[in-house]
């Protein structure tokens, strides 16, 4: 039998990890504990890479429940942050997701020290066409957390209708992951048009592709943000 490729194994590890985040968000067996039930241990290269892909969302269950995260999750997130620094030619999405991981560590009580990077540039979000805007920020949905002020949020606060249009576009095109990410942003924005039907839209996305744990993660986060309004 052929060995699965590295990318296939990484995708599988990301799915497993996302499943644990969803389970923890929904108050499953391990509330606030993510890496251990996903089988990830310290110095586990594949696991650390998976944590880098999911980024700050590894700590999302503890942020949403306002609990101190489990020590292993924090240590592995730190390892991922150190192991995959953004290169000079990193994409905007990569720079921002790296910054989000560092922010989530610094926000802990007590904070986990990490060099405070400057916020990456977000000015391009002011001029991006709404289609590209939504595509890009859906990749950065891990930044959409309670109290998560940052340049991306400030830019989107000025363009809620454009994000809503991008949400419609993504649902129409059956791009469920993008739709879920955009929906999560809309859950933290004011002035979302009521005619969008965000709540039924989130349910629809969950129904159509909730089997993908990355989709379920964003939908669950959005629904918790909508229900708790912890902004």
């Amino acid at each position: 039998m052929e060995q699965p490729s590295a990318s296939t194994r990484l995708a599988g590890a990301v799915r497993d990890l996302a499943s644990e985040v969803v389970s923890a968000l929904r108050g499953g067996d391990h509330p606030g504990v993510v890496c251990a039930p996903a089988g990830i241990v310290e110095d586990d290269k594949l696991g650390i890479a998976a944590v880098r892909v999911l980024g700050a969302d590894v700590l999302l269950p503890s942020i949403m429940s306002r609990r101190r995260p489990e020590g292993l999750d924090v240590r592995i997130l730190r390892q991922a942050l150190t192991a995959f620094p953004p290169g000079a030619d990193a994409s905007r999405a990569t720079a921002w997701s790296h910054w989000a991981m560092a922010r989530s560590l610094r926000a802990l009580d007590p904070p986990v020290p990490h060099p405070a990077d400057d916020e990456p540039d977000a000015s391009w979000l002011d001029t991006a066409p709404w289609q590209a805007l939504t595509h890009q920020v859906s990749l950065l949905a891990a930044l959409a957390v309670p109290g998560g002020d940052c340049g991306v949020l400030r830019a989107l606060t000025r363009r809620p209708h454009d994000v809503a249009r991008g949400f419609v576009r993504a649902v129409r095109r059956r791009d469920w992951l993008q739709a879920a990410g955009a929906g999560r942003w809309l859950a933290v924005l004011d002035d979302v048009p009521p005619s969008l039907g965000l709540d039924t839209g989130l349910e629809f996305i969950q129904h159509m592709d909730g089997a993908d744990p990355r989709v379920a993660l964003h939908v669950s986060a959005a629904q918790l943000l909508r229900a708790g309004d912890p902004r």
């Binding site: 209708h161 809503a164 249009r165 419609v168 576009r169 129409r172 005619s195």
Partner: peptide, 13 residues
């Protein structure tokens, strides 16, 4: 108002 909001998406699609 509804059309001004959503027509751009349908035109794009």
């Amino acid at each position: 108002d509804y059309l001004a909001l959503w027509l751009p998406v349908w035109l794009d699609d």
